[in-house]
Nucleic acid binder design. Sequence first.
DNA 1: TGTAATGTTTACCAATCGGTCAAATTATCC
DNA 2: GGATAATTTGACCGATTGGTAAACATTACA
Lengths: 216, 216
Amino acid sequence: MTIPRAAKTLRRTRIQEEKEEQILEAALDVFSASGFRGSTIDQIAEVAGMSKPNLLYYFRTKEAMHRALIDRVLYTWLEPLRAFDADGNPEEEIRSYIRRKLEMARDFPRESRLFANEVLQGAPHIEDELKGPLKELVDEKAEVIRAWAKSGKIVKCDPYHLIFSIWSTTQHYADFDVQVRAVLGQDHAGEGRFEDAARFLEQLFIGGLRPDRSES
Amino acid sequence: MTIPRAAKTLRRTRIQEEKEEQILEAALDVFSASGFRGSTIDQIAEVAGMSKPNLLYYFRTKEAMHRALIDRVLYTWLEPLRAFDADGNPEEEIRSYIRRKLEMARDFPRESRLFANEVLQGAPHIEDELKGPLKELVDEKAEVIRAWAKSGKIVKCDPYHLIFSIWSTTQHYADFDVQVRAVLGQDHAGEGRFEDAARFLEQLFIGGLRPDRSES
DNA sequence: TGTAATGTTTACCAATCGGTCAAATTATCC
DNA sequence: GGATAATTTGACCGATTGGTAAACATTACA
């Protein structure tokens, strides 16, 4: 007789670890490409290379799979912002934040699209994470930026919108990848586009935030 | 006997105009909220306040509805970029382009999310539009910006990535609206956030593109 | 090695999907 | 007002949806 699934959380077997990993990998593929509503368990099962009931043995519902995936990915995804250092040199901190975010867009585009899909469709499954951990982290870093502005290290500006603009410009290269490629054309759509983007964005943000000529 | 649907394109009745309008309005609601795959004809029918077969009398398939919607919205959506004037003052042109794009994000968020959903999921239905009309328009405007940079009116920079960054930062306020609200909290998430965003983005782009101190 | 727990599959379910059909209703025009 | 064309609807179709039941296979462990 199969033991109630709650028991699984007590001790996890090797097979459980492997299969759950395998499933979440496939789920990332599918959810990031079609959003929650547009994805089907059958698709995920096929990508994962196992039968649908087998999937549902490890995750009772489609929601459970999605949730597990979000939980696993969210921490990593916020890593660059967490690394934002109040004691560092403002110009260098912003520069490396942009670099790190661009690297994530290049190396983990599915993770970016997973969140983009979710937020775009009203964030029905991650509202709590947005209003909780995310907001708190941003609040904290915004305070750092505000202090920099106050002490004249960077121009006076709204730190929240600064963070939004770094998010949007960098994630754009993951979320809108097809559009970027289409517009750049075959000649410039090679992997060099991330280098070009990095160069431009650093120029834009460093130049735009330099304190020189603004109010006292 | 019902006449073949092709006849509809010859002369359109008043009812046809009204109903198609009504359907596309509902379709915009649904498609922009769930993406193509995640939306159902039944949902659209319910929002439009008519029966499903009635919907399908005006649009033979779900694809046809989506296509009609894209076609109708695309032209308007590109209007701000089209208004970009080569003969104008660079600083003022960029400033007003940002403003116009922000206004569209504020006033037509569903349209923005419609495209965001589509592009995010690989643009399976608008690939031609991206590689055709969109690319051509961007190429043209990129040339304008390149000329400005060459003549020293703005800093030397990659015009394509400049356009991408204006797109992403402004559309962010439509596409990631829930996240923006969640992070800003109740106190700052009022409609004033668009004014704050405009102020910040103008400061960022104008400052970041000013030609002063860069290479000769 | 036996056996209990764990893992997998086949067959299936009701609900929903995109879409059709024919009959009924309404608008148009002479 | 009557004929004809345009519009609307309820009933229905096969395919797909998320999910279940139970038989079957495999693993872990004493």
